[in-house]
Every structure is written in structure tokens, then in C-alpha cells.
């Protein structure tokens, strides 16, 4: 596998009954998954049998009977390795992407953490896009009483509303506000989007700098969702990587269970040049940083449960940037 590009893994998640299987069926029927290996929780709703098969050009594999919400579950790892192995042996059609459809109770953050932490998988697979389907009819009620639904919002790169026809006219706006407060990184896709995985998203650095900042300013500072709050880390000048790496690793070592997600861009100082990397972590696990073509400055979103964003921002300044003052820091409690 050496020299071969890592295969992106997209995750389709969403609340129970939000329409994940319907979307998957439509994408398969439209040929949008021709180069994609699809892993599903259960085959019952899809026209396939219990082997690795190709339907409409899309190879499909079975994860297992139960939910894939736990990273200690060996089924997901085995299924992914099985797919890669079958591709190498020529036992299934070649694919350049994997799409995992989770159960409605799964935490996609745990799935991505499993990928990033596994030495065998992380060499061959990279984290793709997490799309979370939110049912407009029941979405608000689900967010009120489901920790799993909140986890799916926190992990999302994009949120796609379903069942718009039956919902009241204000539901989308109210849910958009709540989602933005929980996860400023999540793009809320327009209704007309046919394939939420193909819809172009702004790069994470741009999201952090522009959309996240706007939303932080607009979001209400009230405490909901079990104390989940998002903070923004910025630096006036490029930072020293070793200070950042030591600080982030200690922060996650000490508070990894509470820091649900870190994502954004870090501008690094070194040998007279400035470079930039995309940094992403899910709880204790840090994904391999990716190099960016241009450095536009440090902007990282931190989503935490039960920790004050101000404390994280202050710690970042004391230990990494050496800056003082909080005036330029935007944050919100949700």
C-alpha cells in the first residue's frame, strides 16, 4: 500500500428515522456511489444480501447486526480491513472512497477516533465528511432528550434537513440556530442539495475564520445541552509547533473526555518560514495533521462539555502563544 493515497471515509449519520437509508438508496440508484464501498449497519432496508456484493456499481459490506457506536467494537475495524483486503485481492470492484452509514444511536465521533487511532487503518484511510441528517419534524424534540443526537451534531461537517414538507415553517431556522451553537463548524446544506457528500464545503480554516466567527457573535449565550460550549483559539503570530503539540497533548491527556472536538488551522513558525497544518481531534485522539498550501493564521474551534471555553482560550494563550488579553476572543456557551 505504500505510496497509495489514503482512501477517504465519509460517515452518514442522523437521528432515528431521519431518512438515512432513504438517502442511501437514492444515492445508489442515481449512481452517486459508483466508486464507493458502502458499510451499513443492517441490510434489511437495502436490496442486497449478506455478502460483499455490488449493486448499481456500489460495493456494499456488512458491519454487523448491532450498532457501531463503540470504538472497541471490532466489527467496524474488521469490516474496513476486509474491504481494503478484498480490494487488493481483486475480490471486489475497486473503490476510492468508503461511506459508513451508522445506526441512529451511533456516535460518529467515536468512529472517526477509531480510524485515527488504529495504526493499520490510519495508514490507509483518512477522515472524510460527516453528514448528519436532521428530521425537521422531530429534530427539536430529539435534540432536547437525546445525547446521541447531540453527539451527531457535534461530529458533523455538514447537516442536511429532511422531512421538510411536514415541518412547521420556523423549524429550520430554530434548529439552525441550535446547531450553530453546538457546532460552529457544521455547514447547514441548502434544501436543493441532491448529494450532501458532493456539495462543496468551505475549507475548515475558512469556516473557522468567517462562518464560525459570525455565528459565535450571533449565538445566544445561554447554557443548554449539558454544558456543551464552543470556543475559538486564535493567535496574532505563527506559533511554535512544539509548544502547541505539548500543550494540546497534555490538554487531551487530562481532559480528553470533555473536549469533544478540536478542528482548525495552525500557522507554524519555523526556520524563517511560516507553514500551516489542519489539526483535528476527537476526544483523546488526534488525526494526522494535514499540510495546507497557504498559511492564513491560526484559528481553531474547540467544542467541550463541562469546560469553560474561556479557560481553554486562556490556557492556549499562556502556554502556546504567550499573548495576553481576551478582547479579541469570541466564545459562546450553549
Amino acid at each position: 500500500m505504500s505510496g497509495e493515497a489514503r482512501c477517504p471515509v465519509d460517515v452518514l449519520t442522523g437521528f432515528l428515522g431521519a431518512g438515512k437509508t432513504s438517502l442511501l438508496r437514492r444515492l445508489i440508484a442515481e449512481g452517486a456511489l459508483r466508486d464507493t464501498a458502502v458499510l451499513v449497519n443492517e441490510f434489511a432496508a437495502l436490496p442486497v444480501d449478506d455478502r460483499l456484493v455490488a449493486i448499481a456499481g456500489a460495493p456494499v459490506g456488512l458491519i454487523g447486526e448491532g450498532c457501531i457506536c463503540c470504538v472497541t467494537d471490532v466489527n467496524l475495524r474488521a469490516a474496513l480491513i476486509g474491504l481494503l483486503d478484498a480490494r487488493e485481492r481483486g475480490a471486489m470492484p475497486p473503490f476510492s472512497r468508503v461511506l459508513i452509514e451508522t445506526s441512529g444511536l451511533a456516535d460518529p465521533g467515536a468512529i472517526l477516533a477509531a480510524l485515527a487511532a488504529d495504526p493499520m487503518l490510519k495508514a490507509r484511510l483518512s477522515a472524510g465528511r460527516v453528514v448528519t441528517l436532521v428530521d425537521l419534524m422531530h429534530g427539536e424534540a430529539t435534540l432536547d432528550d437525546s445525547a446521541e443526537a447531540i453527539a451527531q451534531i457535534v461530529a458533523a461537517d455538514a447537516v442536511f434537513f429532511t422531512k421538510q414538507a411536514g415541518a412547521d415553517s420556523g423549524a429550520a431556522a430554530r434548529l439552525s440556530q441550535r446547531i450553530a451553537s453546538l457546532n460552529p463548524l457544521a455547514a447547514i446544506l441548502p434544501e436543493r442539495v441532491e448529494d450532501p457528500f458532493a456539495w462543496p464545503l468551505p475549507d475548515a480554516g475558512g469556516v473557522v475564520r468567517h462562518r464560525a466567527l459570525r455565528r459565535f457573535e450571533a449565538a445566544p449565550a445561554e447554557t443548554r445541552h449539558g454544558g456543551i460550549a464552543a470556543g475559538l483559539l486564535t493567535a496574532a503570530a505563527p506559533v511554535e509547533w512544539s509548544r502547541f503539540a505539548a500543550w494540546l497533548s497534555l490538554l487531551l491527556h487530562r481532559h480528553g473526555n470533555a473536549i469533544l472536538r478540536v478542528k482548525g488551522e495552525v500557522a507554524i513558525r519555523g526556520d524563517g518560514a511560516v507553514s500551516a497544518v489542519m489539526v483535528q481531534s476527537v476526544r483523546h485522539v488526534v488525526h494526522a495533521p494535514e499540510h495546507l498550501a497557504r498559511a492564513e493564521g491560526t484559528a481553531l474551534v474547540v467544542i467541550a462539555r463541562g469546560l469553560a471555553p474561556a479557560a481553554i482560550e486562556d490556557s492556549f494563550r499562556r502556554h502556546v502563544t504567550g499573548e495576553v488579553g481576551v478582547d479579541q476572543q469570541e466564545r459562546v456557551a450553549v
Partner: peptide, 18 residues
């Protein structure tokens, strides 16, 4: 829930070309 004790190897200096 996750059973992981931490994975920070990728944070080491390999992220920085120099």
C-alpha cells in the same frame, strides 16, 4: 465509552516540514 487512553503520535514533529 471509547476505551482509548490517547493517541498523539501524529502530533509530533513530523507535522512540521523543517
Amino acid at each position: 465509552m471509547c476505551g482509548l487512553c490517547g493517541s498523539f503520535t501524529d502530533l509530533q514533529w513530523s507535522a512540521v516540514p523543517t
